[in-house]
């Protein structure tokens, strides 16, 4: 048994090493000058240089885009959790046909490709004076991710016994207090899932910010990286340094919180 475990350990580590090859290529090339890359792209860098990182940081304008991405992601998440949990509480508890219909209406949003409403939504956001602003993107993400958020919350709340809130209400609490003081704290596991899944989606979303923020000076990280790569694509070292810098924040956050992130990804979605 011991020997088998050991063998398995070796096999799994070998798989992981192979799996990490692209990451190795990414980091190695980012540490090399163009000449070194031309000579032997995949060898371990003999004299690593950080020049690529310095120039990638400034030419990709990563500083401002990191701020844009952070603001948009954080505020959207707060709005999603607030709106989503309240709505789900109602949808999970309501017993009328209409309430069920409303729930199905929300689920419809999961399958609708966003391209359908692309132009009308753009006009609407323009009319509101929100085009090319953080607020415009926040409103957009809140709306687009609500179906999934409501879906996760509703399923979770349905499995909660009704008695908690009822008991509180008999003690004289209003619906609002019962929800915020009693029910919401019980939702912590699913809130973690909602937070993480939406954060990864919003942070990495590419096409909408490309449409709505392109050329506005309010680009998010994926859009900045897209145009950065478009301009410097021949210089792999520089491009890869840019990719490393752009991926670093979310990867670091992930590594710090990996236990919770992995749990969050699966717990809301497990059987």
């Amino acid at each position: 048994m011991k020997a088998r475990t050991f063998l398995l350990e070796i096999v799994m580590i070998a798989v992981a090493v192979a799996f990490l090859f692209p990451v190795y290529a990414l980091v190695t090339l980012s540490l090399k000058s163009p000449d070194q890359i031309a000579e032997s792209p995949l060898a371990v860098p003999s004299s690593p240089t950080l020049d690529n990182f310095a120039s990638a940081w400034s030419s990709a304008a990563l500083g401002p885009s990191l701020i844009n991405s952070t603001v948009i992601t954080v505020v959207s998440l707060v709005a999603l959790i607030a709106l989503g949990s309240f709505a789900a509480y109602f949808l999970a508890r309501v017993r009328s046909r209409l309430g069920y219909g409303l729930y199905i209406l929300f689920l419809l949003g999961i399958v609708l490709p966003f391209q359908l409403g692309m132009i009308p939504l753009y006009r609407l956001i323009t009319d509101l004076g929100l085009i090319g602003t953080h607020l415009g993107m926040i409103v957009f993400y809140t709306g687009v991710q609500l179906p999934f958020t409501v879906f996760l919350y509703t399923g979770f709340i349905r499995a909660l016994p009704r008695e908690y809130a009822s008991a509180a209400q008999i003690d004289g609490a209003s619906h609002l207090t019962a929800f915020t003081k009693v029910v919401f704290p019980l939702l912590r596991p699913i809130t973690g899932t909602v937070l993480i899944l939406n954060a990864v989606f919003i942070w990495n979303d590419f096409f909408t910010p490309l449409l709505y923020l392109g050329g506005s000076g309010f680009e998010t990280v994926p859009v900045s990286i897209f145009s950065f790569v478009g301009q410097y694509v021949s210089d792999y070292g520089l491009v890869f340094a840019g990719l490393v810098l752009a991926a670093l924040p979310i990867v670091v956050v992930f590594l710090l919180l990996q236990r919770y992130v992995i749990k969050g990804f699966s717990s809301g979605l497990k059987g």
Binding site: R123, T126, L211, G214, F226, G230, Q231
Partner: peptide, 23 residues
Amino acid sequence: IATSYAPTDQVQTSLRTQLGAGN
């Protein structure tokens, strides 16, 4: 004059959207 530049694909996408929405 405030200027911004991007690769053709990207400009085509965002400009067509802006033109379509009258912006």
